[in-house]
Design a protein around this nucleic acid. Sequence first.
DNA 1: GCGACAG
DNA 2: ATCTTGTCGC
Length: 261
Amino acid sequence: MSAPPGEDLVNQWESEQARLRLQVVEEDTEDWQRSPDFSGLERVGGVDLSFIKGDEVNACAQLVVLSYPDLEVLYEDSRMVTLTAPYIAGFLAFRETPFLLEALQRLERNQPKLRPQVVFVDGNGVFHYREFGLACHLGVLSGLPCVGVAKNLLQVQGVHKNEQHQSQIAALQKGGDSFPLTAASGKVLGKALRSSDRSCKPVYVSVGHKISVTTAVRLTHSCCRYRVPEPIRQVAKDATKALKTSKYRRPLKICHLWECA
DNA sequence: GCGACAG
DNA sequence: ATCTTGTCGC
């Protein structure tokens, strides 16, 4: 008797997450993180994968490094990749991490002086079913401080998108205001952050690795010109642009009736 | 059956 | 994730 399709894989992934989870550092480890104005912080990174409609397999993997505090692009790398793992909520890292790591390794090899001091990741960190989202996974495997920023609320560990949550959102007055996302256990898994004065819809910030929640929220706010922090906004923009222009252009397959036998 | 489902 | 036009507001 074999398990239903996919169940073995998910079980294996869960134990991998449990194993790596032990290595997450949820405190500030860098001097610049303690500084009121982040002095000493000069480079912030962003990573992302972009897709084309109807293609779940091919994607553009992107890494950008921005200067801090000016948020100017210092480095960008994009590469077409072919994914193997499916998207399953809670297991995003197994789909994306290998290619994000490769991009970080290319940077390390070619321009080590541009290594980011912190990486913004599109997705959650410890705000996750098993407290080990994409930002933690990439953080542990790369050894770099990482911050998870999700654009949508994952309902997890007793955190619900209910009326209470909505009224907490409504109470966020200005950019930088936040409220904690508290698990049933009492642990603060992350924070909902109003990232700018003009955006009412918050982003969900959580620790990836080697940074505290408080610092992660403060840093995220300081990297926001718009709702989404600049490193992630830049990387997503460039990846989408790359997909639409030169790099990813193949003729559509012509379907012939006689092939449909 | 119904709702939830980071990207 | 991606699609797509206009529209409202500063």
